[in-house]
Design a protein around this nucleic acid. Sequence first.
DNA 1: ACCTGAACACCGTTCAAGT
DNA 2: ACCTGAACACCGTTCAAGT
Lengths: 240, 240
Amino acid sequence: MSESEGPTRRVGRPRTAVLSHERILEAAFELADANGPEFSLASLARRLGVQPSALHHYFPTKAALIAAMRGQITLRLGTHGFDEQPWYEAILPWARASIEAFGRHPGLIAALATLPIDGEPESIADYERIVAALERDGYPSDLIVPALVALESFIIGSALDGLTPPDNLRPVHEPERSPALLRTEAAARAAASAAGITPAQRTFEFGLRALVAGLRAVGDAGAEPRTTDADAPASRGISG
Amino acid sequence: MSESEGPTRRVGRPRTAVLSHERILEAAFELADANGPEFSLASLARRLGVQPSALHHYFPTKAALIAAMRGQITLRLGTHGFDEQPWYEAILPWARASIEAFGRHPGLIAALATLPIDGEPESIADYERIVAALERDGYPSDLIVPALVALESFIIGSALDGLTPPDNLRPVHEPERSPALLRTEAAARAAASAAGITPAQRTFEFGLRALVAGLRAVGDAGAEPRTTDADAPASRGISG
DNA sequence: ACCTGAACACCGTTCAAGT
DNA sequence: ACCTGAACACCGTTCAAGT
């Protein structure tokens, strides 16, 4: 959109500002859409026709810019009717919109995943809506945030999985050494093809339903003191 | 371990080789263990007392080195008794060992996740063992690989989640605007603290059990032609 | 206040040259 | 074959200087 291939602006403050938070964010999304994991401030500056250092006047660090992008993405997710439907219904379109949004910006997924939420009003508001629905539906209080985070972890991991080639798990080098993998990978790829979607998309939809069903089962049994405790086994496996 | 802070080796082929695949991998794991997402060939070369370009003699690219590290990590995961136990039992310690391994190398998680499996014999062998167990237990053939990939996506996403601060979802800036999140996040953190684990660890264990339970439910209903089809809804949500 | 331009401390990778 | 050293094309960030 904004081409401006550098009429070599001279030094000093321009008469009218060339940049703004909005213009930078817009160009940043264009750059992130042009797929490939190459998202750098330098290439963003090139696209905007400015020097890289000019960007730091609006966003102090690269992480701050990405945090702002995350806020925009969250805004566009929409509400998905958590107020009208039970959480396990409304969460499905929310999850689909989330991975779709992540998939549109391949170069950002890893960065978005590790970014602290911190003071991000949009993400906080999004979480608040979902958490409130779980509370309203009687989900066990101390398992609401874990359920939400587990779901988001699955979404993030699936988004990264979507970056791998469609036949990523196909044993091409020594197929005779992994016959079961060869068989089942072909079956899964054929099923995805028949459905007109990628294997990664089919995997996501399948895993999403399984995870939500599992989370729901625990929540329904949530009135009693919880025999399906989530705490016990961790002491025998996971460390720091 | 290997200090060798550069007695300034002179040019030309050394009388006895200074590097080897094993020495490089060992140092690479030491570097990845020293937490922080800074894993570079330059810092690895510094640790080994060589020039960065020397590394390319053993691993053509950084991605090739990380692929080799992934192979080592997979080897150390162990077998976890998929031959003796049903898949939904053996998969639990396998998943715990996986996230523990990822958690030990924070700087590698994102790179490991996006790496194509390609010709990685160790990972292929690991998958083959798991897939074979699912087949043996009668899991629907075209859902075996999706089940495995969904689980691994959850593990990868959870590993990334483990990098965020423990109170990542706590609304500190405007707590009055998100009361439900404030309540439930505190409840979850308190429960984790009482169990002597981090919130991320408790979330992982909880989500793992929910996901496996959900995957198992679909598999048990797998004899019939599948009314719980994974294909239909994708046509109304997920795109390229 | 808002930009340029130089500078700093990094990256991964290639390749000629030396032994 | 196995390393050094120089070179190339990048990074993010800081900061003085100009308007």
